[in-house]
């Protein structure tokens, strides 16, 4: 199947269907007998094709939130509904790109990308074709036979992106995926992500602590506060794309957001 090449973001956000609904989500950890409320009263919903950034300082529980959405952690109370059905276990409909390197070190780039497909009953030719397509999409065709330890950090994250995109998840979670990259590579990866998003029109939830990254990428920014983690603000980013760091409106937006984050 050919990828959809129309950018879904051009349609009116109001008419898109809600894909993910989070109601009264709460997470309490027990530490040495005392209870610590990490997340409280998390309520939001995500529409199909949206790119949402969850922005917060370290320790505000944004990674915990993402782990619950992905199904790695169970919430203490509240519910997560994907297309109306409650989420319990991890699954291929909700994929994660982690901050750390989580490629399988004994598989080459293309074997890593094919890993998820090989679990499904698919013929070898079909898998090969899909892998070729996604290798090209992330620009790693020449590096297909390299091992993870032989490629750079940015390339590893490209592989991590390709190996989940190939599974066509309903929603993609990204947990500070570019945080450990250098500034230039990070910008490159942001552009790659945006172009993939245009081509494949995924729904993406992107966790970051970087204000500029949030503005560059997202339609909507959920600002989180600490102790306990709550969603303090739900900001729509109505800047025109492509968003350039040096534009005046960008700087203005960034400064405003930064103030929100700090007080």
């Amino acid at each position: 199947m050919r990828p959809k090449l129309t950018a879904i973001s051009k349609t009116d956000p109001g008419t898109r269907k809600t894909i993910l609904e989070i109601n009264k989500l709460r997470k309490v950890f027990s530490v040495n007998g005392s209870f610590l409320t990490v997340l409280d009263c998390i309520d939001f919903s995500v529409k199909s094709g949206e790119m949402i950034c969850i922005l917060g300082r370290s320790g505000c529980g944004k990674s915990t939130l993402l782990k619950m959405l992905a199904g790695f952690l169970t919430p203490s109370s509240g519910e997560i509904l994907l297309n109306g059905k409650p989420v319990s276990d991890p699954g291929t409909d909700r994929c994660v790109v982690f901050q750390e390197d989580t490629l399988f070190p004994w598989l080459t780039v293309q074997e890593n990308i094919a890993f998820g497909l090989r679990g499904r009953n698919k013929d070898k030719k079909g898998i090969r074709k899909e892998v070729d397509r996604f290798l090209a999409l992330v620009g790693l065709t020449e590096f297909r036979d390299y091992l993870p330890r032989e490629i750079s950090g940015g390339m590893k994250q490209r592989v991590a992106l390709a190996r989940v995109l190939i599974l066509k998840p309903q929603i993609l979670f990204m947990d500070e995926p570019f945080a450990s990259l250098d500034a230039q590579t990070r910008e490159e990866m942001q552009n790659l992500l945006l172009s993939l998003w245009e081509k494949l029109s995924h729904t993406i939830i992107f966790v970051t602590h970087d204000v500029n990254e949030a503005i560059t990428l997202s339609d909507r920014i959920l600002v989180m506060s600490k102790n306990p983690g709550r969603i303090r603000e739900d900001i729509h980013v109505n800047l025109a794309r492509p968003r350039k760091l040096e534009k005046e409106e960008f700087i203005f937006f960034s400064r405003k957001l930064y103030e929100h984050l700090c007080d």
């Binding site: 199904g71 790695f72 699954g91 291929t92 909700r94 994929c95 994660v96 989580t102 998820g116 679990g119």
Partner: peptide, 15 residues
């Protein structure tokens, strides 16, 4: 084994 590898496997549908 890095538990993240197992998590990554689980999310890619590995039983």
């Amino acid at each position: 084994i890095n538990p993240l590898l197992l998590q990554a496997g689980a999310m890619m549908g590995v039983k």
